[in-house]
Simulated assay, not measured.
Amino acid sequence: MKTIASCVQEIIISSPFLEEGLSREIINFSALAKDLNKPISNMLRKPVKNGAIMMALRRYQQPLNLENSNRLKTTFKALGDITVRSNLSDFTFQNSKTLIRSHSQILEKISANSQIFYAFTRGILESNIIISSSEKESITNAFKNETLIGSKDKLSAISIYLPNGNSEIAGLYYQIFKRLAWENITLYEVVSTTNEFTIVVEDDLVDKAFSVIKRLKD
Score class of each variant (00 low, 15 high):
2 K>N: 06
4 I>R: 08
5 A>H: 14
6 S>I: 01
8 V>L: 01
8 V>K: 01
8 V>F: 12
10 E>C: 05
12 I>A: 06
20 E>H: 04
22 L>H: 05
26 I>Y: 11
28 N>T: 09
32 L>K: 03
39 P>K: 11
43 M>A: 05
46 K>S: 00
58 R>C: 08
59 R>Q: 09
63 P>T: 15
67 E>C: 03
68 N>S: 11
69 S>M: 04
71 R>S: 11
72 L>V: 02
73 K>N: 13
74 T>D: 09
78 A>K: 12
80 G>R: 04
82 I>L: 06
85 R>L: 12
86 S>V: 14
93 F>K: 09
100 I>P: 02
102 S>G: 13
112 A>G: 15
112 A>C: 15
113 N>K: 14
120 F>C: 06
122 R>I: 00
124 I>C: 07
124 I>V: 07
126 E>L: 01
128 N>E: 14
130 I>M: 01
131 I>L: 12
133 S>F: 15
143 F>P: 03
144 K>G: 04
144 K>E: 08
146 E>H: 11
149 I>L: 14
153 D>H: 13
154 K>E: 12
158 I>Q: 08
159 S>I: 06
160 I>M: 05
167 S>P: 09
168 E>I: 08
170 A>G: 04
171 G>L: 06
175 Q>Y: 01
176 I>Q: 01
179 R>V: 01
181 A>Y: 11
184 N>I: 10
186 T>H: 14
186 T>C: 14
189 E>K: 09
195 N>A: 13
196 E>F: 03
197 F>K: 11
202 E>C: 07
208 K>T: 04
212 V>Y: 04
214 K>R: 00
214 K>E: 05
217 K>C: 04
217 K>I: 00
218 D>K: 09
